[in-house]
Design a protein around this nucleic acid. Structure first.
Length: 641
RNA sequence: GAUCCACUAGCUCAGUCGGUAGAGCAUCUGACUUUUAAUCAGAGGGUCUCGGGUUCGAGUCCCGAGUGGAUCACCA
């Protein structure tokens, strides 16, 4: 019987070593401290002064090369590796034997002197060592590391100590965050924190995650953007604010999207989107120099040159250049539709000029924006929080910043006209009512804030994960997230969670129908080929009914007797042959569907007034059946069409 | 959500035409007092992701499921 799940002979061998250690009185998990005087990289960098000196280092044993009465090992700490040199005559026979019993992955404290080997490798001659924690599982292959991307994400801790690139990437991520803060702090910005739990998710067009506060009995949303809170702070008198934090959007996952991601948003009073372009340049250059030491980068197959100034071009000019169409001169709806059709741009029914203009940009221009490019002057229709551009109808002062065909930043001259803002929210509400789930919601308090006057300001949002991807040459956003969102495996899988909750007592249904089915074993009846006309169909009266009482018919092994409320005020009795699928008591109070205008029929001497509707199918050779159980909110007597 | 691809030992990967499951690293045993992807000799280790089907016989062919990856859609 293995002592650990997912055990194997290698795990057992390590467990046996653990047993021997404990029997000999040294518990490898008992130590609490170890004094460390140096890290590995320091020793290598300062070898001249440290040679022959005593050092104390700690880390993980990664490689071992035994030579009989002497042996080598590689000790890895958070900065790098250093070689250990161990000799039997330094440790004594017993202690040397214990050293040989160590495994790769074990965490060690080392005391020794700095030396250089015959081949020139800077090493530590081990005088004594301590096992700080025993590693019970074998390490991935030492040369190739951990390649399986699934395992790298699910077991990031393994990935991090086995693949140096991975560890480096997260160190660089921290450098990016530090540099963003440093640059903004030096420019007089104040870092603030605004709520993640929002009553109204605003500031972007995205589907939110919903959660619930029990005490307030209130549905709350995880923020999709901090924008509306940060701009309230401008009203409050702060002139330069920023927030770096996690946003949550309930949307697809891709190499550039994760449901939770990190965004930098900042607002600066008394400037506009041109000021934000300058600041974007400054931030990108500062981060590139801090992390890469240069502004000439490589991202996958492409060379990216971040040397300022970055290209600035209007959306109008880009589309004109790519397609020959001047959207500023294409205001007629009929002409617009014809142009879209001619260019095979798919248009949705409710789209106006702005949406079509944007679709042209996205289709014909966006993928070509490889080198850093500010695209400015966006359609008003897709920018409900941005200020109108003077002199051009339906255009706002907004830019998006692109690198390698992807959006890296988004900025506006912020809309501070309270009446216009209110009208824009109203427009969004109309879209929402028309079914656009991502249209903004009205934020009454935000409108009120604007009524107290918000200074003219520029606002900027930067996708921090994408910036880190660029600076660390990562192809997938998951490579720059420590723990990217994954579907759970094993005990945490959704199916298992359900069955656990079920066995906890809340769900008592014993039926075969409730368990999850192996769909490959389900067979259903072929669809009918004979058609029924609508009139015939609509003469069948399907009604929502509630089970007032349900009892088993004593002498029948199939029948249950239902007393039903069908909304008519008179109880309806229906007998149904589903006893082997459901227990009578479990069905009391359920909301079901019955057909109520069938001729009365006696079963076991009792008249049955209709049929309850079930789903039937063949499962594994036998019959499968599920009664249609509806949401209890549906009113009794409601007619089904 | 759609399409394509992957899943074989702890890890990295082979596996031919459908015919007894392979290597390297790792592990275990032995040799070796300056190696560094140490070396040398030997041994053990497999629910071929899961469930069906075809077949005398399936890692291999077919169907379904799971997880992951890529592309597309979505993400103004």
């Amino acid at each position: 019987m293995p002592r650990l799940p997912n055990s194997n002979e290698q795990v057992e061998a390590r467990l046996n070593k653990l047993d021997r250690l404990r029997e000999s009185g040294s518990d490898p998990y008992a130590l609490t401290t170890f004094e460390v005087t140096h890290v590995t990289t320091e020793i290598r960098e300062n070898f001249e002064t440290l040679e022959g000196e005593k050092v104390r280092v700690a880390g993980r044993l990664m490689g071992r090369r035994g030579m009989g009465k002497a042996s080598f090992g590689d000790l890895q700490d958070d900065r790098g590796r250093i070689q250990l040199f161990v000799r039997i005559d330094a440790l004594g026979e017993e202690n040397y034997a214990a050293w040989l019993d160590l495994d790769t992955g074990d965490l060690l404290g080392i005391v020794g002197t700095v030396m250089r080997t015959r081949t020139g490798e800077i090493s530590i001659r081990v005088a004594s060592w301590t096992l700080l924690a025993k590693c019970l599982r074998p390490l991935p292959e030492k040369f190739h590391g951990l390649q399986n991307v699934d395992l790298r994400y699910r077991q990031r801790y393994l990935d991090m100590f086995v693949n140096p690139d991975s560890r480096l990437r997260f160190i660089q991520r921290a450098q990016v965050l530090r540099q963003l803060r440093r640059t903004l702090d030096e420019a007089g910005f104040l870092e603030v924190e605004t709520p993640i739990l929002n009553v109204i998710p605003g500031g972007a067009a995205a589907r939110p995650f919903v959660t619930h506060h029990n005490t307030l009995d209130l549905d709350l949303y995880l923020r999709i953007a901090p924008e509306l809170y940060l701009k309230r702070l401008l009203v409050g008198g702060l002139t330069r604010v920023y927030e770096i934090g996690r946003m949550f959007r309930n949307e697809g996952i891709s190499t550039r999207h994760n449901p939770e991601f990190t965004m930098l948003e900042l607002y600066q009073a008394y400037t506009d989107y041109r000021g934000m372009m300058d600041l974007t340049e400054k931030l990108f250059v500062a981060c590139a120099e801090a992390v890469c030491g240069t502004t000439e980068l490589c991202w996958g197959e492409v060379a990216i040159d971040l040397t300022p100034p970055f290209r600035r071009v209007s959306m109008r000019d880009l589309v004109l250049e790519a397609t020959g169409i001047d959207f500023y001169a294409l205001r007629d709806p009929v002409e617009l539709a014809a142009t879209a059709a001619a260019h095979q741009v798919t248009v949705e029914a409710h789209w106006g000029w702005g949406e079509v203009f944007n679709a042209f940009f996205e289709t014909f221009c966006e993928p070509q924006l490889i080198q850093p490019t500010f695209v400015y002057d966006y359609p008003l229709a897709i920018s409900p929080l941005a200020k109108r551009k003077a002199g051009v109808e339906d255009i706002v002062e907004r830019f998006e910043f692109f690198i390698n065909g992807g959006e890296m930043a988004n900025a506006y001259s912020e809309l501070n006209d309270p009446l216009d803002q209110r009208a824009r929210f109203d427009d969004q509400l109309r879209l929402r009512e028309a079914g656009d789930e991502e249209a903004s919601r009205m934020d009454e308090d935000y409108c009120t804030a604007l009524e107290y006057a918000m200074p003219p300001a520029g606002g900027l949002g930067i996708g921090v994960d994408r910036l880190v991807m660029l600076l660390t040459d990562a192809v997938s956003i998951r490579d720059v997230l420590l723990f990217p969102t994954m579907k759970p495996l094993g005990v945490n899988a959704p199916d298992e969670q359900q069955s656990r909750e079920g066995s906890a007592g809340a769900q008592t249904q014993p039926t075969a129908a409730r368990r999850s089915l192996d769909l490959s074993r389900v067979k259903v009846e072929p669809l009918f080929e004979d058609m029924v006309d609508f009139e015939t169909f609509s003469r069948s009266d399907f009604r929502v009914v509630k089970v007032l009482d349900c009892e088993e018919i004593p002498k029948s092994d199939r029948l249950l007797k239902f007393t039903l409320d069908d909304g008519s005020g008179t109880d309806r009795i229906i007998l149904s042959g589903i006893k082997k699928y459901y227990r009578a008591a479990d069905l009391i109070g359920k909301t079901l569907v019955a057909i109520t205008n069938l001729p009365e029929r006696k079963m076991m001497g009792i008249p049955s007034q209709g049929m309850l509707i079930s789903a039937v199918y063949e499962y594994d050779g036998g019959e499968g059946l599920n009664l249609l159980i509806l949401d209890d909110d549906i009113p009794v007597g409601a007619k089904l069409y």
